[in-house]
Amino acid sequence: MTAGFVELDRVRLQYREGDEFALDQTSMTIKEGEFVAVVGPSGCGKSSLMKLVTGLMPPTEGTVIVNGQEVTDPISIVGMAFQASTLLPWRTTLQNVMLPLEIVQPHRSRLRRHRTEYEDKARALLAEVGLSGCEDKHPWELSGGMQQRANLCRALIHEPRLLMLDEPFGALDAFTREELWDTLQALWMEHRFTVILVTHDLREAAYLADTIYVMSKRPGRILEVRKNDIPRPRDQDTSFTQPFVDLVHELRDHIRTVRAT
């Protein structure tokens, strides 16, 4: 078996001794540049999975390997975004986007002398997600959708090779959410980082992912790995085609049986 970019090998996770496992016998192999979606019932351990892969928490058993190395501490080749946008209200949008550059090496030591260069990069990224002109606004002056766009930029500014998204569009209305799918797809097709996207929205998974993992109820295991070969770029029309509709139905059936057991 060829090793993937992200490799989970029979991982188990227990928050406290005596607790039921949050994750059980979870194995995944994700290729570099792959777009993965993880779906499953609430409380099945999706967010826990994110914490394991980013090294925020060690697994109780099993190994997590990213980029050929076992993950024991946080690894800076990841970018992260959550449902809550977690932008800092005292910083402008541009300053928010530049935050990772103040922390991650080698940018951290280069930032002071190459400030304008980095600022241009941040502006370009903001322009890519349609936020030109908002650089000097504070997050609370932006709409929810705009905040999530800025949040994506912050997750991507240091050019991570792995993007971890935990229900990033969960709090948005349907129209804004679907707009952001296109934004994310465009970013991904342009930069080709690896993505692990946790979502409740099966259409979102079908729209964006190459591979969809369906998880069981707690203790979370991988029940089903579904390849999604619908050609890209996918657009709003794609979501009305038969293969797309069939895929969403299939996923829904899976989730229904998972919840019923």
């Binding site: 980013t54 925020l56 501490d73 992260m80 809550a84 935050l99 103040e102 922390i103 991650v104 090496q105």
Partner: peptide, 25 residues
Amino acid sequence: EPELRDVLRSLGATRRDILMKVGFP
């Protein structure tokens, strides 16, 4: 907020970084 701490920690921020960039402001 725990999410904010996670975002920073996942970038490899030290305790001091978190304190200076987020805690004190």
